[in-house]
Design a protein around this nucleic acid. Structure first.
Lengths: 339, 339
DNA sequence: TGAACAAATTAAATCGGTTTAGGATGTAAT
DNA sequence: ATTACATCCTAAACCGATTTAATTTGTTCA
C-alpha cells in the first residue's frame, strides 16, 4: 500500500509552495492570480498522482465535515428508512454523508444524540422531532448550523421544515368514506401534543362537522403494542355503531388491524378501514386497505434542497422555508364495501 | 454562544503545559508519572469547564474517526434497516457512529462508495456485498482497517463475517412442508452466484432428495418486480402439480404473493407458502404465512462485537471470525392446510 | 562533592491542509 | 533613477490535539 499523496508532495515536485497548490486545487487560481501556466502544471500533476486533499485535515482546518446528522424516532420504521434512503442518495450526490441515530422517542436520548452530532461537527441537521425538544432545537437553530425538521414540527418555532398537509389529508379521507356511504366514522389516534397528530385529528373533525355527522374519537396513551391493542379493542366493542375507522398513523394502524383480527371483525363489512401512512402490508392484506400515502422521495428531495441551499451559499435567505406537501389517497376498492 | 473550551484553556488556567493536560485527559497520568495532586486538579477543571477534546482535531491527529461505514444494497429494505438500527445502537454505546450508503446492487456504485468511505477515513466497514466485489473487498481487508461482511459472503475470501445457516434453514423449511403432507414443493429463487442464495437452494435440494421427492426450481433473472411477477406466474401455471412453494428471499416472496394474487390461487388450499425472511406483512396477510426469520439483533450484535474487538485492541487475533447463526421458522398455521 | 538515577513536567514537532499578509519581480510613468 | 503599481507567488500562522525527546529538580550513594 503506497501512502497517500499530500499537498507537500505536489509542491515539492513542482518546486513551488503549498499555498499555490492549495489555491489551484480549490479553484482560486484566478482569484489569487496564479498564472495559467503554473495552474495547468499543478492540475496536471494532481491528476497524475491522483492527489485528493485529506478529508480530515480539511475538516479540521475549516470546521466543515460534510456530514449531516439525521435524527428520527426509529430508523427501522419504513417511513424513516425510506426517507433515509432518498436523503442519502441526494446527499451523496453533493459530497455529503449522513450519520443517523434513533431517539426511540426518548427525550433524554435525543438530547444526548444532538450533543453527539454537535461534538462531531455535523454541518447540518435533519430531524423528526420527539416531543419536548423545543428548547434544544431552538438552541440548535441559533447555533449557525442549518436545521431542517420533517414529519413533525413546532408551530411556535420558526424553522425550516418539510411536512405534509395532515389536516387536508384526513379531511379528504373522511370525506371519501362519507362519499362511500359510511355514517359512523371513528378516529383512532394517540394522546399527544405532536402537531402532526393534532392536525390529522383536526381534519377529521372538520369533515365530520361539515357533513353533519357524529364524531367518535379515541386517543390512546401509547406505550406499547399490547396495551394499545387492548385499548383499541375496547373502543371497538364500546362503539358498536361504527361502520368505518381511520387510524392516524402507521403503528396505530398495525395495532388496529391486530384488534380487528382479534375481534374477528370483517373488513369492510363490519368496519371499513383507512390508514394514515401507506405500507406494503396494506396492499397485501386481504382485503387490501385504503391508505393515505406520504410522498417519500418528494419529502427527501425538499429536505435536501433546503439544507443544501443553506449549506452551499452564504445567501442565507432570511425567513424560513416551510414546505407542505400533498399526500395521495391510495384507494383500494376491497377495503370499502362496494355500494 | 460561548466558544468551546480547548486544551489550551485548561493548561493556561492551571499554568501548566498542554502535554500534561493531554496525558491526564487520556488516562495516562500514571504512565506518564503525573503527580496525583496535579492530576486531580486537571480533572477538576476539566469537569468544571466541561472540556471535551475536539473530535476533529483528535481524528486529524490520530487518524481515527470513530466512524464506521455501512454498505448495503438498499437501506430501506426492512432487513437492512433493521440491522441498521441495531448496529447504530451498539455502535453508539461505544462512541462510534455509522455512515451508510446503498449500492443498489450496482458494482461501480459500490466501488465508488467504498472509496468515499476510505477517503473519509472510516475506522471499519460493515458490508453486505453486491456481486463482483471480491477484489475490492480483498484489497480493503489488506488495508489495515477491519471489515465485517454479513448476509452475503465469498467462500474463497477469508474474511470476518456473520451469516445465517442458509442451507439448514431451507432444509428444515422443506422438511416442515413434507411433514405436513406436501409432496410437490417448488422453490423460487433468482439467477445469481450470490453464495447465500446458492446455499438456500442447496438446503432445499438436499431435503427433496432425502425425502425422495421431485424437485421443481425456478431461477428468475431478477431485474424488476413486474418482470419477475410475470416469470413466477408463468412458472405456477406450468407447474400445475405444485402444492407448496418456498420463496428464497423477501423481495421474491413479495413478487410471489403478487403472482398468487393475480392467478387467484388460494393459500394454502391451492398452494402452501413459506418465505425466506420474515416481515410484518406475512403476519397480517390472510392467511398469515410461515416464514424463516433471521435474528436481526443477534446478527447486529455479532457484527459489532467482532468489529469492536478488531478496533479496540491490538489483539489482532489472527484468523478470521466467521459466525453462522441459526434462523427461526415462524410457523403460522393458516398458511398450511390443516391436515 | 558530585555522579547517577528517579520523578515530574514540558517544549516542540507533527498531522495536512487554508488563509493572511506580504515579498519579489517587472514594467510604466515621472 | 526613482516611484508606483500590477502581477505572481510564498512564508508563516493557525486549527487542537498527541507524542517524543528533553529538561528540571530532588534524592541517594559512593
Amino acid at each position: 500500500m503506497k501512502k497517500k499523496v499530500s499537498i507537500k508532495d505536489i509542491a515539492r515536485q513542482l518546486g513551488i509552495s503549498i499555498s499555490t497548490v492549495s489555491f489551484v486545487v480549490n479553484g482560486k487560481a484566478k482569484e489569487k492570480r496564479i498564472s495559467d501556466d503554473l495552474t495547468k502544471k499543478v492540475l496536471q500533476l494532481v491528476e497524475e498522482l491522483d492527489y485528493k486533499p485529506d478529508a480530515l485535515a480539511k475538516s479540521f482546518r475549516t470546521g466543515k465535515t460534510n456530514i449531516i446528522g439525521f435524527l428520527v424516532a426509529d430508523i427501522s420504521e419504513p417511513f424513516f428508512s425510506g426517507i433515509a434512503r432518498f436523503i442519502d442518495e441526494k446527499a451523496s450526490q453533493k459530497g455529503y454523508k449522513i450519520i443517523y441515530s434513533s431517539t426511540k422517542n426518548n427525550k433524554n436520548k435525543a438530547i444526548e444524540l444532538l450533543q453527539i452530532f454537535q461534538d462531531r461537527h455535523v454541518d447540518g441537521y435533519i430531524i423528526a422531532l420527539p416531543e419536548g425538544l423545543e428548547d434544544e432545537v431552538k438552541a440548535l437553530t441559533l447555533n449557525q448550523k442549518p436545521v431542517v425538521l420533517f414529519d413533525r414540527y413546532f408551530p411556535e418555532l420558526n424553522t425550516d421544515h418539510v411536512i405534509i398537509n395532515n389536516e387536508e389529508s384526513t379531511y379528504n379521507a373522511t370525506k371519501h368514506l362519507v362519499d362511500n356511504g359510511y355514517k359512523h366514522i371513528g378516529f383512532v389516534t394517540i394522546d399527544t401534543i405532536e402537531q402532526q397528530m393534532l392536525d390529522r385529528l383536526k381534519g377529521y373533525e372538520l369533515a365530520i362537522k361539515t357533513e353533519g355527522l357524529q364524531e367518535s374519537i379515541i386517543k390512546i396513551p401509547y406505550s406499547n403494542s399490547a396495551s394499545s391493542i387492548k385499548e383499541i379493542s375496547a373502543y371497538f366493542q364500546k362503539e358498536q355503531q361504527l361502520d368505518a375507522v381511520i387510524f392516524a398513523a402507521n403503528y396505530i394502524c398495525m395495532d388496529g388491524l391486530r384488534s380487528i383480527q382479534r375481534l374477528d371483525l370483517k373488513i369492510p363489512e363490519d368496519l371499513a378501514v383507512v390508514s394514515f401512512d401507506d405500507f406494503e402490508l396494506l396492499e397485501f392484506s386481504s382485503p387490501t386497505i385504503t391508505a393515505i400515502a406520504q410522498p417519500l422521495e418528494d419529502i427527501a428531495e425538499n429536505i435536501m434542497s433546503i439544507l443544501l441551499s443553506r449549506l452551499d451559499d452564504q445567501k442565507s435567505e432570511k425567513g424560513h422555508k416551510q414546505v407542505v406537501l400533498p399526500t395521495v389517497l391510495n384507494v383500494r376498492k376491497s377495503s370499502l364495501a362496494q355500494s
